[in-house]
């Protein structure tokens, strides 16, 4: 079981916009941790710093004591991107996307072996996407798209899985399926960090919560930290109801 520690992290973008300031937090091993905060509060920036997609101006991220780069080489971390980060018109099938989760294990030519193929099929099975494996990715519904990328994370066999807004554009039934799968992964000792707008569902499956608005305002077990006070501090006094139902787009 592998923890993530974020120590004193500051990130300023090249347009001089300060995205994160002195953020420190820990994602406990073997837990599901929710990352909540307003849009522009630095959630995606923190994700990108943890995944090594950007280098912080100050501070550092450690994955089980390793640098992010070393953790990547050891295939410790898998990332499920936000829907709008993906080019859905790309001429690629679901199967091929999931296979990309295995590239880190393959040789120079990236020729898949029997084990790679087996793990891809198992991952597709876990998310219930086997029958859609030959579809071009743009031909999927919102929930199927999320599950395809979750399958890629599973195929990568990363001990840590980061999911950026996985419930946006997903219907309630799919959201429930995905939550069940995340709980199952937690039982298999994965460490899961999830950023979400769906505040209502957090207490149903997240062990811990991190509140983020430019910096870490509060973090701890969901039971202790998920309070009206922390929500107000993070979101700036918006009424609870307007936040809980912000995530209203669903599958057609």
């Amino acid at each position: 079981m592998i923890p993530i520690t974020v120590d004193n992290l500051s990130v300023t973008y090249s347009n001089a916009k300060l995205a994160l300031y002195n953020a420190s937090c820990a994602v406990e091993p073997g837990t599901i941790t929710a990352l909540v905060g307003p849009n522009g509060g630095g959630k995606s920036t923190l994700f990108k710093a943890i995944m090594g997609f950007l280098s912080p101006n100050e501070g550092n991220v450690k994955i089980g004591g390793l640098t992010v780069e070393k953790a990547q080489k050891k295939q410790l971390m898998a990332y499920v991107p936000q829907s709008d980060e993906v080019d859905w018109n790309f001429p690629i099938s679901v199967f091929d996307v999931v296979m990309m989760g295995r590239y880190g294990y393959m040789n120079f030519l990236r020729i898949p072996g029997a084990k790679d193929r087996r793990l891809v099929m198992e991952s597709l099975e876990k998310v219930g996407m086997v029958e859609f494996r030959d579809r071009q990715i743009g031909e999927l519904s919102g929930g199927q798209k999320k599950r395809a990328f979750l399958a890629r994370a599973l195929a990568q066999e990363g001990q840590i899985i980061l999911l950026d807004e996985p419930f946006t554009g997903v219907d309630i039934k799919t959201e429930k399926q995905m939550i069940d799968l995340l709980l199952q992964l937690r039982a298999e000792n994965h460490t899961i960090l999830i950023s979400t707008h769906d505040l209502a569902s957090i207490s149903t499956f997240c062990d811990r919560t991190i509140f983020l608005n430019q910096t870490v305002l509060a973090s701890g077990t969901t039971a202790e930290t998920f309070t009206q006070e922390n929500l107000t501090m993070t979101f700036g006094g918006l009424p609870m109801t307007s936040l809980a139902f912000q995530n209203s787009e669903v599958d057609a």
């Binding site: 295939q75 990332y79 980060e85 790309f90 590239y103 120079f108 890629r152």
Partner: peptide, 22 residues
């Protein structure tokens, strides 16, 4: 011919390429 899969991954999802240590 030798790098076609990596190049395709790079075109499709450079973040994932980074995440798996490429």
């Amino acid at each position: 011919l030798l790098r076609r899969r990596d190049l395709l991954l790079f075109c499709f999802d450079p973040n994932h390429a980074k995440a798996i240590g490429l």
